[in-house]
Structure formats: structure tokens, C-alpha cells
Simulated scan of single mutants.
Amino acid sequence: MKLKHHLFVCMNQRPPGHPRGSCGGAGAGSVYEAIAGEIEKRGLFEQIMVTGTFCMGPCDKGPTVVVYPDGVWYGGVKPKDVAEIFDTHLVSGEPVKRLRIM
């Protein structure tokens, strides 16, 4: 199996009120589920993989999603953004500018 893309979703969970915040506390679980659902809906199991991670750094911009091998970082991702990431970036090859943080 040769993957076309691998998406990493920060799932790190800090205690409520932590000064750095956390992607887990900002709804990363729902984003992960939306990505997994989109992979299933589109039948892309052999082309796209999603993996939950611990902290990737930009906690104040979470939930953070990183797309490899492109090296594109998205911040503030919501479940409603996932279809746009698939259509615009993963299918058409153009990163979603409004969500891009790196």
C-alpha cells in the first residue's frame, strides 16, 4: 500500500484552564472522527491515513492537523472544515489558505 497522504491530528489533552490550552480540549476528537469518516465515505483507505498524536506545539491554534508529505499545518480545524480540506488540498492539491498556520 502506497499512501498519498498521512494526516496527523493533535489529540493532546491538558487540564481545563491550563495556560497553553490543548487541542483535545478544543475539539480534536471530533476533527479526528470527521477525517476518519471522510476517508471511509470516499473509500480512500489505501490512499489516506489519519493518526492521533500528542502535542505538536502550536497549542493556542488548535485543533492542529498536519498533512504529510506536504508539510502543511492547519490550525483551528473544525469538523465542518474537513470536507474542504479533502476537496481543496487532498484531491486538488491546493492547501486551504484560511486554515493554514505553516
Rank of each mutant, 00 (worst) to 15 (best):
I35M: 03
A36R: 14
A36G: 11
A36K: 15
A36S: 13
G37C: 06
E38L: 04
E38Y: 03
I39M: 02
I39Q: 02
I39Y: 01
E40C: 06
E40V: 10
K41Q: 10
R42A: 14
R42M: 13
R42K: 08
G43W: 01
Q47P: 00
M49F: 13
V50P: 07
V50Q: 00
V50R: 01
T51A: 04
T51C: 00
T51E: 03
G52K: 15
G52D: 08
T53H: 01
T53K: 04
T53L: 12
C55L: 08
C55E: 05
C55H: 03
M56W: 03
G57F: 09
G57C: 07
G57V: 00
G57A: 02
P58K: 10
C59T: 05
D60E: 14
D60L: 14
K61T: 05
P63L: 06
V65N: 04
Y68I: 10
P69D: 12
P69C: 14
P69A: 14
V72Q: 01
W73P: 00
G75V: 05
G76N: 12
V77S: 05
V77R: 07
P79G: 05
P79F: 07
P79E: 02
K80V: 13
V82S: 12
A83W: 01
A83P: 09
A83G: 04
E84F: 04
E84Q: 11
I85R: 08
D87E: 12
T88K: 01
L90A: 04
L90F: 08
V91H: 01
